[in-house]
């Protein structure tokens, strides 16, 4: 499937749909990681629709670009995109976390077509992404390895081990995006375990560092493209995002990290919080 030409109206609409469906999937199950999933909509859409070389009918195509969702708990939004791109039927989306599902809460390379690496135990995905990027160089392949990490995830020491490794080995085929929504489970990142100055940290680890507005189509595309031209070192793009973006009830609230939906009233309230509602569910 080819990359798509940017059409702001169409992409805005797509982001609305992706957010709506992802929220519905989580609510339908009754609980899940909502905030960090839906805040990725514009970034993941840009990657899968405008940047990455993929063949949904051949998920293991050797030349494809890889994506490691190191913040593996945000599987739901990735599943929605993968279904939209045709990696599997959209009807699967209704099975999120259900018994016997192929769409588990945390991404699993052995369950879901299009998922490149199992992740969920935080910090591990970035190391795996380094291994994939290194293999690309060893095998003289031209694919690029994208990896999305979380800001809370950046508390993990393993992130910084991988940061050292990637720059030491000049992995310029590795492009990492940090979803910097400034919230983690126990509160705001600066209250739980401060990351600032985050840009300087990555820079001092030998990475080329960019910052972008993680909800601005033009900025996302431009920064990713620019990062893809970097030679001799890995790139980090710190994406400033709003956790649970697009849901007026939960936006930027600590409780949006993991929601519980015990009854229909709660379900309705959360769905009513969405800015856009006229979406036809595909399942």
């Amino acid at each position: 499937m080819g990359k798509e030409r940017f059409d702001r109206k169409k992409f805005d609409r797509l982001a609305q749909e992706i957010r709506y469906i992802t929220t519905d999937m989580i609510c339908r199950y009754g609980q899940g990681h909502l905030g960090g999933s839906v805040d990725l909509a514009e970034i993941v859409i840009t990657l899968y629709y405008r940047i990455m070389n993929i063949r949904p009918a051949d998920p293991q195509w050797g030349e494809r670009d890889r994506l490691v969702l190191s913040k593996g708990h945000c599987g739901p939004i990735l599943y929605t995109i993968l279904a939209y791109k045709g990696f599997f039927p959209k009807s699967w989306l209704a099975t999120l976390n259900m018994d016997g599902t192929r769409l588990p809460s945390h991404v699993d390379q052995n369950q879901t077509p299009g998922v490149d690496i199992t992740a969920g135990s935080l910090g591990q995905g970035l190391s795996c992404a380094c291994g994939i990027a290194l293999a690309g160089k060893m095998n003289r392949k031209n694919y690029r390895t994208f990896c999305i990490i979380g800001d809370g995830e950046s508390n993990e020491g393993q992130i910084w081990e991988a940061a050292l490794f990637a720059s030491h080995n000049r992995l310029d085929n590795l492009l990492v995006i940090c979803d910097y929504n400034k919230l983690q489970i126990d509160g705001f990142t600066e209250d739980v375990l401060g990351l600032e100055p985050l840009t300087e940290k990555w820079h001092s680890f030998g990475w080329e560092v960019f910052e972008m507005d993680g909800h601005n189509w033009d900025d996302i595309y431009r920064k990713i493209h620019k990062a893809m031209t970097v030679k001799g070192k890995p790139s980090m793009i710190i994406a400033h995002t709003i956790k649970c973006k697009g849901n007026r009830l939960l936006e930027n609230k600590p409780e949006c990290h993991y929601i519980r939906v015990p009854d229909k009233d709660t379900y309705r309230k959360i769905m009513d919080g969405l800015v856009y509602k006229d979406v036809q569910l595909p399942y």
Partner: peptide
């Protein structure tokens, strides 16, 4: 030398690197 990867004192990262390599067909 091309088949030797020094990870430094980072055992956790070494395992992850190996997992990524293995996913791409290497035998680490």
């Amino acid at each position: 030398p091309d088949n030797f990867i020094e990870c430094g004192v980072c055992e956790a990262n070494m395992i992850g690197i190996a997992a990524g390599l293995a996913k791409e067909g290497k035998i680490p």
